[in-house]
């Protein structure tokens, strides 16, 4: 397999590290070589967070090179936009439609683009864009904290990752606390079905 690169972008506290670990674990289950890069500490306190998942025999570097992401999984619109440099016209973008306003926007009267503007801008780079309301589905599943698993479910439904649904589910079950397993499986299913229903399946 040629390398497969996923960039996850969002805001500290949205559950990005777990999402990355799920994707990495699922890949390992299928015998793939994998690297997942994370940033801890200072960067997690509500700041911009990105994580990279790289799969493939020849993968050494844990970080994705500009212009080479196969998938950009955006947990937040502004952060998705901020990381467009990793995409090309072939990149598939799955974006959560849940803006988190950057600090200082009120006191310093910073303006920021609306979700609609962001979608237009992203579409200028790649036509493969799917937007989903993960927060709403997560709440439906039982907790906003499952938004990461909703997005993983959504990603699974696009068929745009080289890992099987089964491994993704298994990895999720292994990595979430036992008592939240059911809730997370609901979240996975809701995300999966939402994308399946509303988005045309992609062919590789």
């Amino acid at each position: 397999m040629k390398e497969f690169n996923i960039v996850i972008a969002g805001v500290g506290g949205q559950g990005i590290l777990l999402a990355a670990e799920i994707l990495g674990t699922a890949a390992l289950k299928e015998g793939l070589n994998v690297r997942v890069s994370e940033i801890h500490g200072m960067a997690q306190r509500g700041g911009s967070v990105i994580s990279n998942i790289r799969m493939g025999e020849k993968v050494f570097a844990p970080t994705v090179l500009e212009g080479t992401a196969d998938v950009l999984l955006g947990f937040e619109p502004i952060e998705t936009l901020r990381n467009l440099k990793f995409t090309s016209e072939n990149t598939f973008v799955l974006m959560n439609n849940e803006p988190v306003l950057p600090p200082g926007w009120a006191t310093k009267m910073i303006s920021f683009p609306s979700v609609e503007e962001i979608i237009v801008k992203i579409s200028g780079f790649t036509k493969n864009v799917v937007v989903m309301k993960a927060a709403k589905l997560a709440e439906e599943a039982g907790s906003i904290l499952t938004r990461n698993v909703v997005l993983i479910g959504g990603l699974a439904a696009t068929g745009r990752v080289p890992t099987e649904i089964g491994s993704l589910k298994e990895a999720t079950c292994e990595l979430v606390p036992a008592k939240y397993k059911k809730m997370n499986m609901r979240a996975f299913k809701l995300g999966y079905e939402h994308v399946q229903k509303n988005v045309k399946p992609m062919v590789f």
């Binding site: 306190r45 700041g47 212009g67 502004i78 467009l84 303006s111």
Partner: peptide, 25 residues
Amino acid sequence: INFKKIDEVFSEILKDLPSRPPVLC
């Protein structure tokens, strides 16, 4: 990879984008 071109295109996007430093919870 033509990084220069990528930079040019994306500096345009990043220009008006508010930064998001970490904050107290």
